[in-house]
Simulated scan of single mutants.
Amino acid sequence: MQTTDMNEQRLKQMYDNSQEIFSILFNEIGKVIVGQKSVVEQMIISILCDGHALVESNPGLGKTLTISTISKCMDLSFNRIQCTPDLMPADITGTNIIDETEGIKKFKFEHGPIFANIVLADEINRASPKTQSALLESMQEKQVTSGNKTFILDKPFFVLATQNPIEMEGTFPLPEAQLDRFLLKIQVDYPSFEDEIEIINRYTLIDTPEVRSIISKSDIFYLQRLTREVPISEELKNKVIKIVSTTRSWKEHIEYGASPRASIGLILASKAHALINGRNYVSEEDIKKMAYPILRHRIVLTFESERKGISSEQIISELIKKIN
């Protein structure tokens, strides 16, 4: 009973200080990452929703640096996996090795890089389907099975996978069913002229910026709970369901629509967006903002739409207008 009271007290304390916590967190990340506020915000939203994110951009835009900086600021262990066609499932999950102690040989499980709080799967579309499946199984079950033993992954556990939209030769695109397991698809754009000047000024000096830990693992669990407690009206819930269900019926532009997982994701992400931006309720703006990263990887456009050069972003924009 006393532990429950302490938890509730800590939860209230986190709620009262949440705006200050997020402000300090974003400022600390900003010491290393120039601009890209929306990208950083969406990565934090993914963590608050206990989901995974797919990050897409051209090379050299700081995806790895952003993710590793967030892990340092949130006091989370971090591992990076460079995906290549010859990468095997055991290279990710780990494998049994023979360990000899005092002349006695026995099998010992050697943990792979998947055993971390934040795992960066760099260029996931370069890994073979078999290896992708091993990674996605860990994402879904949050555990690794080797032989007859099961190893639970440390919590919190997040996979942030990146893919490069160019140089598609020799890649293995993720099937739609596997894409659906990612809560968000985050797109990273080139920096503005002013931001690029700041990047050059900051990273051509002898001393590169360093960051400190702002929140602990236990704080993340409280923030995840606070996210789920943000209220949303029945009217906005219905709007979310209408947006997602329309992706299944708008056959003029969309071949395959989004599953109910998208409805859950859009409501959760909207709650996290509201919490980060200092609101104690979900607004229509939260839903409009989060509809793009939630839906852009979950809808498959018709051949005719692709032939005309219509993008997923345009379809989502039209979809939001249509529901309004």
Rank of each mutant, 00 (worst) to 15 (best):
M1Y: 08
T3I: 13
T4P: 00
T4Y: 15
M6S: 13
N7W: 10
K12Q: 15
Q13F: 10
Y15S: 13
Y15W: 15
Y15V: 07
D16T: 12
N17G: 08
S18P: 00
F26A: 03
K31L: 11
I33Y: 08
G35Q: 08
Q36F: 05
Q36V: 02
K37I: 12
V39F: 07
I45A: 05
S46G: 15
G51K: 02
L54V: 08
N58P: 01
P59R: 03
L65C: 02
L65H: 01
I67R: 00
T69Q: 06
T69R: 04
I70T: 08
I70N: 06
I70Y: 11
S71A: 15
D75K: 14
L76K: 04
S77G: 10
F78Y: 13
N79Q: 15
I81F: 06
I81T: 02
C83P: 01
T84C: 09
D86S: 11
M88S: 08
M88G: 06
M88C: 08
T93G: 13
T93V: 15
D99Y: 10
D99W: 06
G103F: 03
I104F: 03
I104R: 05
K105Y: 09
K108G: 00
H111W: 03
H111F: 11
N117F: 07
I118C: 02
A121E: 04
E123C: 10
R126V: 01
R126K: 09
A127C: 02
P129M: 03
T131G: 12
L135E: 04
L135K: 06
L136T: 13
E137F: 12
S138D: 09
E141G: 10
E141C: 08
S146I: 07
K149P: 00
K155Q: 15
P156E: 00
L160E: 00
A161E: 05
T171F: 07
T171Y: 07
F172T: 05
L179F: 03
L179E: 06
D180Y: 01
F182M: 10
Q187P: 00
V188L: 12
P191L: 07
P191Q: 05
F193D: 10
I200N: 01
R202Y: 02
R202M: 09
R202S: 07
Y203M: 04
T204Y: 02
P209V: 10
I214L: 09
I215R: 07
S216H: 03
L223G: 08
L226W: 01
T227E: 02
T227F: 01
V230P: 01
P231T: 13
E235G: 02
L236Q: 02
I241Y: 04
K242D: 14
S245T: 13
T246R: 15
T246D: 07
T247S: 06
H253P: 03
G257L: 09
A258G: 05
S259A: 11
P260F: 05
R261H: 09
R261A: 12
A262F: 04
A262I: 05
S263Q: 01
I264Q: 10
L266P: 05
L266G: 07
K271S: 11
H273Y: 15
R279M: 13
R279A: 14
N280G: 14
Y281G: 02
S283G: 14
E284Q: 12
E284S: 13
D286W: 12
K288D: 09
M290S: 06
M290A: 07
R296I: 08
R296W: 03
V300C: 06
T302V: 09
R307K: 14
S311D: 02
S312P: 00
S312K: 14
E313K: 11
Q314E: 12
S317Q: 12
E318K: 14
E318G: 15
